[in-house]
Design a protein around this nucleic acid. Structure first.
Lengths: 337, 337
DNA sequence: CCCATAATTGGAAGCGCTCCCAGAGCGCTC
DNA sequence: GAGCGCTCTGGGAGCGCTTCCAATTATGGG
């Protein structure tokens, strides 16, 4: 049973020979293509089983000009951005959808010039059948690389400045507006926004939603208190806010990490949440439930984001022309507001 | 400048022609191989630039029998296991190390039979130059697949039952022992363990460390209170513990998620941490810092785990025979104990 | 100035698979 | 019984690159 000769992988030709058919027939049989008689098909199947033959994906890729893989590129200036559990969920969704199309997932963390350069080469060399780009920042070189590459590309979230042809995004403006409206509806009038980096579209859009809601309610929006989406930056922003606007009674944080940071800063400053200050976050990650008090937050369908990106990419690869998609958010109320 | 003809990628032959050299020379020049005169090398470089030539990785892969990619396989019975931020950090480390060797990262979430089958095929067909396997459970079919595939394979953590030839692991027993010893050293005598799934080696090893430390201190170890590494399971385990052993005064949780859950259950039961019950976790993820009170925990070098796995794999791929590695842990004391 | 030696060079054979195409075989119809 | 439209079949030409090898040219010592 066990040969331990230094055997190579068996090739199609060996199957061909054992089954007594031509290469074309063997190839067709293996790919379940038509025009193969029942007898030959079975002969091929038998030979395949006997030899333990597995098609060589590289050779197939060369012949078909399809690699069978899609890249998920996460930009950022250092790899720590990827530590955000957000991406893990995107991956879960994308991975599932790619699997349906029998594509493999290539993950590229484009956090250094070197790695960005490698991504560029991947795109230009058609090292994948398509790519999903996420977390692009302003003037991100990846945007141009993607444009120049003649490869299907789907954006996750819109990059700052331009609106790509194909993207999946979450309704950031709407979600932020809803969060702010909720705070206002609970009687808060001095509501501040701890926003994410304003060189990202998410950061801007969520601030815009806050501002719109404030203006619509006849309240004065405060200028953006910028953080970088991390917990410490949220705490720092909250501290700054308390220093400049001691009378703040509501806070909209542009994500849960910063919301959790704000909660901590408030606790350290002796403010009671939600009595003194109500806080709403964005994302609805695990941290929102674990936070104390649990964080009222804007839920966004993260796995669905990944899934839809992948589906859109698959559609693109198969020659269709899908339309961009904006996924809805919904407010999840917990104890913090 | 901009041709918008439906141009294919330029091929080596076109470079060859433009530079006026043979294919061999062009190939050597492009790969920085020796035996190319200065003049021809420059001619090739010029042609490459002029044509915007990028080597086709698939063709190269077919010729060299090297795909230029390594797979990271995360097993599990459903994809949610991947939501654990643990993996994100492993990926950050692995990705960086692979980049140094100019390898791409293929991520496989093997959470269904279908996806496991695809991984098996990837392994058998040599669709990657090597693979890193993580989170294998007892009788995990991936173990056999990996064994049968003649492909370099590195394990992250040891699977239950067997000790693979190449692996990188964390000192789970030592870490758990240290955590328990610390609790004991703080005067706790009725220390319980909330352990992870006992069909994983991590779960077993951490319980073993707890038990060893208890026995060494002349205390009675409690039977394992099993959770599944999630926050809710930690809370449930803690509740069960309080019901069966109301006098418990110390808890070692096999990871931070469950530690956070225990904290919540204790709070809900009116116990004060660390006065009534001291709690120690394991992992030192972000949740440990955010928890209230902040969780004393066993820090493990997660990114380093990923990095070392990747390095070991690279060594294996390049024909070396590296030795298994066990990474040290260290206790980080915070307010919970 | 000639020959041994080393550095370059280009031809050509793969790597393993897909797929176009022409030809063969076969059952019908008219 | 010839002609037509099928389905099958296998030959062979790629896909784009690496690399072995024999041939060519450059180098240099005697």
């Amino acid at each position: 049973m066990a040969e331990d000769a230094p055997r190579r992988q068996p090739t199609l030709d060996e199957v061909t020979e054992l089954a007594g058919v031509s290469r074309s027939v063997a190839s067709r049989a293996i790919n379940n293509a038509p025009h193969v008689s029942r007898a030959k098909r079975e002969a091929v199947e038998r030979a395949v089983r006997q030899l333990g033959y597995v098609p060589n994906p590289t050779a197939r890729a060369l012949a078909t000009r399809q690699t069978g893989a899609a890249a998920l590129v996460v930009s950022g200036e250092d790899p720590s951005i990827f530590a955000d559990p957000f991406f893990a969920q995107v991956i879960v969704g994308a991975s599932a959808a790619l699997e349906e199309a029998d594509l493999h997932l290539m993950l590229c963390l484009a956090a250094s010039d070197r790695s960005r350069e490698r991504v560029g080469e991947l795109l230009r060399s058609k090292g994948a059948d398509g790519a999903m780009l996420m977390a692009l920042r302003e003037h991100d070189p990846l945007a141009r690389m993607a444009e120049e590459a003649e490869m299907p590309v789907v954006f996750g979230g819109r990059p700052v400045g331009t609106t790509p042809r194909w993207y999946v995004d979450v309704d950031n403006v709407g979600g932020a507006r809803e969060a702010t409206e909720y705070l206002v509806s609970r009687g808060r009038t001095r509501v501040a926004a701890i926003c994410g980096r304003l060189d990202t579209e998410v950061g801007r859009a969520r601030y815009r939603g806050y501002r719109d809601a404030m203006l619509a309610a006849g309240l004065d929006p405060l200028p953006p208190q910028e953080g970088d989406f991390t917990e410490p930056s949220g705490a720092a922003a909250m501290a700054a806010l308390l220093a400049n606007h001691p009378d703040v009674d509501g806070v909209f944080a542009a994500n849960d990490n910063m919301g959790a940071g704000a909660l901590r800063a408030l606790r350290e400053a002796g403010r009671v949440v939600p009595v003194d200050v109500a806080v709403v976050g964005f994302d609805d990650l695990a941290v929102a439930q674990i936070a104390d008090p649990p964080l009222t937050t804007v839920h966004q369908p993260i796995a669905a984001l990944g899934r839809e990106m992948a589906r859109m990419l698959v559609a693109l690869i198969s020659g269709q022309d899908p339309t961009p998609l904006i996924l809805p958010t919904r407010l999840v109320t917990r104890a913090s507001a």
